[in-house]
Amino acid sequence: MVMNIKNFFWGLSLLALSIVSCSDDDDINANEVPQAVDATFNQTFPNATDIEWEAKNNKYEVEFDIETIDHKALIASDGSIEQYKYDIVATELPAEVTSKLSTDYPNNRLDDSEVLKIGTQTYYQVELENEPQDIYLVFQEDGEINSEVTYFQ
């Protein structure tokens, strides 16, 4: 009976591990990325390292580093870049954004700040610590919140 219980728990552990390992079903190898997407990526970000691809609804999300700075891009299957972002330190935020944060969110600590590029537009997205759920905001360069632009996770 002891052996059967051990086998049961061993099997249950293996099942749980296999379920967890399948959670990254969107991950794909670089050789699975369409040629147009790969060409755009390599032309736009020639110095990219630590490249990881995901397929998402006929689009391709790629995470990568450039000189140790985290980047992420969303590229359509035709090779057009829909948006991309990269990490910045808080001191690189425009003064207008910093002012708005200190005025409107004085009790929330800045957890993350990034530049977000959509077409020719530049935005700044920030994550503020807040209980029970963090606050995600997208700012225009003039410091105004843009609620029409979705925060790019």
Score class of each variant (00 low, 15 high):
Glu92Arg: 06
Phe64Cys: 12
Ile81Tyr: 08
Tyr124Phe: 14
Asp70Pro: 00
Ala76Gln: 06
Thr122Ile: 13
Leu74Trp: 07
Lys100Ser: 15
Glu96Tyr: 06
Ile88Gly: 00
Lys100His: 15
Tyr105Gly: 13
Ile135Gly: 14
Ile66His: 06
Glu131Lys: 06
Glu96Cys: 08
Lys85Met: 06
Val97Arg: 04
Lys100Tyr: 15
Val62Glu: 02
Asp142Leu: 01
Glu129His: 12
Leu137Glu: 12
Gln83Met: 07
Phe139Trp: 13
Tyr86Val: 00
Gly119Ser: 07
Asp87Cys: 00
Ala73Lys: 01
Lys100Ala: 15
Ala76Trp: 01
Glu131His: 11
Asp70His: 07
Glu127Asp: 07
Ile75Glu: 00
Thr98Leu: 14
Asp111Ala: 13
Val97Tyr: 06
Ser77Thr: 09
Val126Gln: 07
Asp142Lys: 01
Glu61Phe: 08
Val97Ser: 01
Glu63Asn: 12
Phe139Ser: 07
Val97Asn: 01
Leu128Glu: 06
Ile135Tyr: 14
Tyr105Val: 06
Tyr60Phe: 15
Tyr124Leu: 09
Val126Leu: 11
Asp65Phe: 11
Pro94Thr: 00
Leu74Arg: 03
Glu61His: 09
Glu67Ile: 10
Tyr84Thr: 04
Gln83Glu: 10
Phe64Met: 10
Gln83Trp: 04
Pro132Leu: 09
Glu63Tyr: 13
Gln83Gly: 01
Glu61Gln: 13
Thr98Phe: 08
Ser113Phe: 04
Ala76Leu: 08
Gln140Glu: 14
Lys85Trp: 07
Tyr60His: 15
Glu127Ala: 04
Phe139Ile: 05
Val97His: 04
Thr122Met: 09
Ala90Phe: 02
Thr98Val: 09
Ile81Thr: 09
Thr103Ala: 14
Leu137Asp: 13
Phe139Asn: 07
Leu110Glu: 02
Asn108Pro: 13
Val89Leu: 03
Asp104Tyr: 15
Ile75Leu: 02
Val126Ile: 09
Ser99Tyr: 12
Pro132Trp: 10
Val138Met: 01
Asp111Ile: 02
Tyr123Val: 05
Asn107Leu: 14
Ser113Ile: 00
Leu101Val: 08
Lys59Ala: 09
Ser99Gly: 08
Val89Pro: 01
Ile118Gln: 11
Val97Gln: 02
Lys85Asp: 04
Asp104Gln: 15
Ile81Gly: 02
Ala73Leu: 02
Gly79Cys: 05
Phe64Ile: 03
Val62Gly: 03
Val89Met: 02
Asn107Gly: 14
Asn107Ala: 15
Ile75Met: 01
Pro132Tyr: 06
Leu93Pro: 03
Arg109His: 11
Glu61Met: 07
Thr122Pro: 09
Thr122Glu: 12
Thr98Ser: 13
Glu61Trp: 06
Tyr84Met: 05
Ile69Trp: 13
Asp87Asn: 00
Tyr86Trp: 11
Glu96Ala: 15
Leu101His: 06
Phe139Thr: 07
Glu82Gln: 13
Asp142Ala: 06
Asp104Thr: 15
